[in-house]
Design a protein around this nucleic acid. Sequence first.
DNA 1: TTTCCTGCAAAAACTTTGCACTCAC
DNA 2: GTGAGTGCAAAGTTTTTGCAGGAAA
Lengths: 165, 165
Amino acid sequence: MSELEAVSVAVSPSEKYREYLATQRLRMTRERAIIVEEVFATHEHFDAEQLIQRLNLRQDGKRVSRSTIYRSIKQLEDARLIRKVARQDDRDLYEHDYGYPQHDHLICKKCGELTEFDNDKISELLEEVARGFGFRIEGHRLEAHGLCDKCCRRPRERPKKLNLI
Amino acid sequence: MSELEAVSVAVSPSEKYREYLATQRLRMTRERAIIVEEVFATHEHFDAEQLIQRLNLRQDGKRVSRSTIYRSIKQLEDARLIRKVARQDDRDLYEHDYGYPQHDHLICKKCGELTEFDNDKISELLEEVARGFGFRIEGHRLEAHGLCDKCCRRPRERPKKLNLI
DNA sequence: TTTCCTGCAAAAACTTTGCACTCAC
DNA sequence: GTGAGTGCAAAGTTTTTGCAGGAAA
């Protein structure tokens, strides 16, 4: 399942965001529209700095300030459009939460590669365990750390720096 | 499994640390001894700031500087004596890795309670998934987020601040 | 026209680092 | 004796915030 297909969704991320903002009596501004569009332009994982860079490079007048980007990332999290995946290089790494199926990650400690997978059995077992504690699960995060296929075979290769776009 | 018993270990954490240092040709200093002792004095989860506070309160001359504590935490991680559990309030939270069985967590988003559990089936399934990708797992982290038993029953109670010791 | 929002710069929060002195081996 | 370790203060990073001007509804 490394090639996930987007789940068909009733409304676009921008629309979903607009709906969220409406429920909170907040406004859909030019900046928020630019950000949600940029965030959902690709399915790459990203961190705040990367998003700032992407929006800073734009010469089409669609620049958005650093503060606003930080503020919006939080809001997109609240709106359940994105969520934190992991920490990488002292930064929170985000991914799409809306319009994308639940999945977990295999994280290569050498090259940083993130492989997505999903396993219903694991989710079921987890539910079962939680039930035993009277715990109501709303979501989970499962990351396995180790060496990916490539890095197992070629252990001498030096790690890529993935944080610099 | 909320009441885990410590696994019986051949050597104490301090001894394990000393061995690690020896393999790296590093030295067991007074400060490092104080830190490893304090870290393993209880099984509580902790973050850097909390450890600094604990060591700062001591009037017995066993104070250790902030820098050294940060440096040692990293080293204890490298030595596999402790490991990161999660992030809480923008800080990395650590727990014992040595002398304590592998386990995962149920994290209550309301009161912050951490419940530990272990399930071999889940670990096995994860291994199986990883094998399919040619991925070699060295460790994993599984956290379920939601509401604990108490908070399901009494949803109106206000969350405790757990970060202040 | 009333809030809410943005950008900027400054601040905050956490962590790392340079350096001179000290100490373990 | 010598290289590693420590404490301090200063700097580095990432993220947050106060505020004045600007813009949705």
